[in-house]
Simulated assay, not measured.
Amino acid sequence: MDADLAAADADRQKTDAAIAAYEKALAEAKANAQGIANASREAIQADLAAKRSAAEADLAGKVSAAEARIATTKAEALTHVDEIAAETAQAVVSQIVGDVSSDSVRAAVAKVKG
């Protein structure tokens, strides 16, 4: 009977040791899986950040180019303002008092413009 109790105790100790080894292996596997997940998450975030940065740089370049085109168009349009004002003034004055020379209309527009 003592031999059976000793054998049972030995089996229990082996079972306890096996359970402890299993729990240790499980904890290590969980830690390893967590490490892999963290590394994957960091790699994905770095990739997304790089792609976002590239997209933002591309958009900034396109915005700058568009702003330059707008400034050029605006500057070109402003060069024609005096001409348009003179033509409009000449048409209005011609309707009121008759023909007026374009030189006198341009001079009057320049005087008003200051």
Rank of each mutant, 00 (worst) to 15 (best):
A20H: 07
D99I: 10
V63D: 09
S40Y: 10
L5E: 09
A7I: 01
T72H: 05
A54W: 12
A110G: 05
A43D: 09
E76R: 09
A55I: 10
Q95L: 10
G98P: 00
V100T: 05
A8K: 13
Y22R: 13
E23P: 00
E23A: 08
A68L: 13
Q95N: 12
A31P: 02
A66C: 04
T15Q: 08
A107T: 05
L5I: 07
K62T: 03
K30C: 05
A17P: 00
R69E: 14
A68H: 07
V81S: 04
T88S: 07
D9F: 02
L48K: 14
E87R: 05
A54I: 11
A29T: 10
R52A: 13
A85N: 01
L5R: 08
T73V: 09
D16G: 08
G35V: 06
D4Q: 13
A107N: 02
A17N: 12
A31M: 04
A20G: 00
D16R: 13
T88Y: 04
G61A: 14
A6I: 08
G61V: 08
R41Q: 11
D16S: 13
Q34Y: 09
A89C: 03
A20K: 07
A86K: 02
L48A: 11
R41L: 12
V105N: 03
V112A: 11
T72N: 03
A18F: 08
D58T: 08
A20T: 11
N38G: 10
A107Y: 04
L5M: 12
T73C: 07
A68N: 07
K111H: 12
S64V: 09
S102G: 03
I19P: 02
T88V: 04
V109K: 00
Q90P: 02
A31W: 00
S101N: 12
Q45A: 14
L78M: 08
V81E: 09
I19Y: 03
T73A: 11
K62L: 05
S64L: 12
A18R: 02
L5G: 06
S64M: 09
Q95S: 13
E67H: 01
S94R: 12
E67I: 01
S64Y: 02
I19C: 02
A49D: 07
I84T: 05
K30M: 14
A68G: 03
A29S: 13
A55R: 04
A21K: 04
Q90T: 03
T15G: 03
T79L: 05
R69Q: 11
K51L: 15
K74D: 04
A25P: 00
L26I: 06
D82A: 10
A65Q: 09
I96C: 05
K111P: 02
A107F: 01
A110F: 01
G114I: 00
D9T: 10
